[in-house]
């Protein structure tokens, strides 16, 4: 049986760059929001004027990151639509 080998495009990777994240989310809420898609390796949240509302979310598995990116792009969190890109 030859299963169709689905090659992931090169820009797909385990690190997502998030923008438009509400400022007041707790750590639990952030882990809950992103943890639904797979095991999380690390999350960095912007804590300065110029980085507030942005975050880097690192998944353990590249397919979980892809799944999260597809589902969370444009996802409404407290009235703000998340912008999700693969970290380059």
């Amino acid at each position: 049986m030859t299963n169709k080998v689905v090659r992931l495009p090169p820009e797909v990777n385990r690190i997502l760059y998030i923008r438009n994240l509400p400022f007041n989310l707790t750590t639990e809420e952030i882990y809950d929001l992103f943890g639904r898609y797979g095991a999380i390796r690390q999350i960095r949240v912007g804590n300065k004027k110029e980085t507030k509302g942005t975050a880097f979310v690192v998944y353990e598995d590249i397919f979980d990151a892809k799944n999260a990116c597809e589902h969370l792009s444009g996802f409404n969190v407290e009235g703000r639509y998340l912008i999700v890109h693969y970290h380059q």
Partner: peptide, 20 residues
């Protein structure tokens, strides 16, 4: 190496966090 340190806080996973 991949991610900025400056301007970002590394979150400690909450005790309730269960990796799926």
């Amino acid at each position: 190496e991949l991610l900025p340190r400056d301007g970002y806080k590394i979150l400690t996973p909450p005790p309730t966090y269960q990796p799926i």
